[in-house]
Amino acid sequence: MNHTFIMILNHMLSYLNLHLMSRFGVAMGASTGAIYYVYTGKFQSKSRKITLFIISFMFGVISAEFAANFLSAITPSSVVAETSFGAMISAALCMKILKAIGNNINDFVSLFKKS
Rank of each mutant, 00 (worst) to 15 (best):
residue 4 T to V: 09
residue 58 M to A: 10
residue 79 V to L: 14
residue 16 L to V: 05
residue 34 A to Q: 02
residue 24 F to S: 07
residue 112 F to S: 06
residue 5 F to G: 03
residue 98 L to Q: 09
residue 67 A to K: 03
residue 49 K to G: 00
residue 83 T to D: 15
residue 47 S to Y: 12
residue 46 K to W: 14
residue 55 I to R: 00
residue 72 S to W: 11
residue 70 F to V: 06
residue 60 G to N: 01
residue 114 K to A: 04
residue 34 A to D: 00
residue 31 S to R: 02
residue 99 K to V: 04
residue 24 F to A: 05
residue 19 H to L: 11
residue 89 I to T: 06
residue 104 N to S: 10
residue 36 Y to K: 08
residue 115 S to N: 15
residue 115 S to C: 05
residue 22 S to R: 11
residue 81 A to W: 11
residue 107 D to V: 10
residue 34 A to Y: 04
residue 11 H to M: 10
residue 49 K to Y: 07
residue 39 Y to A: 01
residue 100 A to I: 07
residue 94 C to S: 15
residue 1 M to Y: 04
residue 57 F to Y: 15
residue 83 T to M: 14
residue 67 A to D: 04
residue 97 I to A: 01
residue 112 F to N: 07
residue 84 S to L: 03
residue 102 G to P: 01
residue 102 G to Q: 10
residue 111 L to E: 14
residue 19 H to R: 14
residue 102 G to K: 12
residue 35 I to H: 05
residue 27 A to L: 11
residue 11 H to F: 09
residue 32 T to I: 07
residue 48 R to F: 07
residue 75 T to I: 05
residue 86 G to M: 05
residue 52 L to D: 01
residue 25 G to A: 06
residue 63 S to D: 07
residue 60 G to I: 00
residue 79 V to H: 14
residue 115 S to L: 13
residue 51 T to I: 10
residue 73 A to K: 15
residue 2 N to S: 03
residue 51 T to H: 10
residue 115 S to F: 13
residue 58 M to L: 13
residue 110 S to L: 14
residue 64 A to R: 10
residue 50 I to G: 01
residue 58 M to P: 00
residue 25 G to E: 04
residue 104 N to E: 13
residue 49 K to Q: 14
residue 31 S to I: 05
residue 104 N to V: 03
residue 1 M to S: 06
residue 27 A to P: 01
residue 95 M to R: 02
residue 78 S to F: 15
residue 64 A to D: 07
residue 70 F to H: 06
residue 110 S to R: 15
residue 113 K to H: 12
residue 112 F to D: 03
residue 85 F to N: 02
residue 10 N to K: 07
residue 99 K to C: 04
residue 59 F to K: 09
residue 32 T to V: 06
residue 62 I to D: 05
residue 114 K to S: 08
residue 80 V to W: 08
residue 102 G to R: 15
residue 8 I to S: 05
residue 11 H to G: 01
residue 41 G to L: 11
residue 56 S to E: 01
residue 97 I to E: 00
residue 29 G to F: 09
residue 74 I to A: 04
residue 82 E to C: 02
residue 84 S to A: 13
residue 93 L to Y: 07
residue 64 A to F: 09
residue 57 F to H: 11
residue 44 Q to H: 12
residue 67 A to P: 00
residue 53 F to W: 14
residue 101 I to P: 03
residue 52 L to I: 01
residue 58 M to V: 02
residue 54 I to L: 13
residue 18 L to S: 12
residue 9 L to P: 00
residue 15 Y to A: 12
residue 59 F to M: 12
residue 107 D to C: 08
residue 55 I to D: 00
residue 71 L to I: 13
residue 6 I to V: 06
residue 92 A to V: 04
residue 36 Y to N: 06
residue 91 A to D: 02
residue 53 F to E: 00
residue 88 M to W: 11
residue 105 I to Y: 15
residue 42 K to I: 02
residue 3 H to Y: 12
residue 78 S to T: 08
residue 62 I to Q: 09
residue 80 V to H: 13
residue 82 E to M: 08
residue 26 V to Q: 06
residue 109 V to K: 15
residue 49 K to T: 03
residue 105 I to T: 07
residue 72 S to E: 11
residue 88 M to E: 02
residue 50 I to R: 06
residue 103 N to Q: 14
residue 4 T to A: 10
residue 79 V to G: 02
residue 54 I to D: 03
residue 85 F to L: 11
residue 66 F to P: 01
residue 85 F to I: 06
